[in-house]
């Protein structure tokens, strides 16, 4: 393959010469990468921004929050998307929240367990509790659904429960929220954690899942808006230093009340203004 790989690269370069770097980021194009949770929302905000600012292009790419952080740092993109608060190692970046999201524990609807204490959740995820009968349910084996490395929901979950990912004994590792919901809906013994807006919508539509309250607070969008639900996160746009020019205008627009309907349409919670 070495020979044909070289041919390949040669071909790429020749084609390149023809197309001649039209793509590079210019003054009228914003490129964003990052969290797949935030991407559909920012994509919609971008379309509205494009409509109000003819000639401007907002290109939204995905890949996860870590990628958003890395690409913003390296200068590959103008703005990153990160679905959590920035941590202590990321002080070189500036976060601009555009919406809130809560993360709730979900079980299959047929599971009789109504609530789990933080200690029980920890023990289940560490593999110390392996059957629902140990926490008041049926004698069914627990299927622990965890999120993949690099997902902000995972980081939020680990931080809240003071767990390390290496301690978790998961049977299923998933990426996106919808995937988590589908996994739990298809497995009566499963436990997982997903974005609350998404879970609320799916549960209302008849998907066999249910959200557990946390520390006595019901997992509802209203409780996230009030800031009462313990496991919530900001959805952020991040920039390297203070944003300028087009990036600044876009971030101001994304943080304004003009996008509230878009935030709600993606099952997130608009910022309290």
């Amino acid at each position: 393959m070495k020979a044909s790989r070289w041919f390949e690269q040669l071909a790429a370069v020749t084609i390149l010469a023809g197309v001649a770097g039209v793509a590079s980021a210019s003054n009228d194009r914003l490129v964003l990468t990052g969290s797949s949770t935030v991407a559909p929302l920012v994509s919609e905000i971008g379309k509205r921004f494009e409509k109000q600012n003819p000639g401007i292009r907002v290109d939204v790419q995905t890949g996860g929050s870590s990628r958003g952080v890395a690409d913003t740092r390296s200068g590959l993109v103008n703005i990153g998307m990160v679905s959590r608060a920035l941590n202590s190692g990321e002080h070189d970046l500036v976060a601009h929240a555009i919406a809130m999201d809560g993360v709730g524990i979900i079980l299959h609807r047929s599971n009789p367990v109504q609530t789990l204490t933080d200690e029980q959740v920890k023990a289940i995820y560490r593999g110390q509790i392996t059957h629902w009968s140990e926490v008041g349910g049926k004698d069914v084996r627990i299927t622990v659904v965890n999120k993949a490395e690099g997902r902000s929901t995972l980081e939020l979950f680990l931080h809240h429960f003071a767990l390390k990912n290496s301690e978790i004994k998961a049977q299923v590792v998933i990426g996106e929220n919808q995937q988590g919901i589908k996994t739990v809906a298809g497995n009566p013994g499963a436990v997982g954690y997903v974005s609350i807006g998404t879970a609320e919508y799916e549960a209302a539509r008849g998907t066999p899942i249910k959200l557990l309250p946390m520390a006595g607070v019901a997992a509802t969008v209203d409780n996230i808006r009030d800031g009462r639900f313990p496991l919530s996160r900001p959805l952020n746009l991040v920039t390297k230093g203070a944003p300028t020019g087009l990036a600044k205008r876009f971030i101001e627009f994304a943080r304004s009340g003009a996008v509230n309907d878009l935030v709600e349409a993606q099952f997130f919670v608009p910022l309290a203004r």
Partner: peptide, 10 residues
């Protein structure tokens, strides 16, 4: 993939 795994109600 995005509609089925990432977009709620897609």
């Amino acid at each position: 993939y995005d509609l089925s795994m990432n977009v709620t109600g897609g």
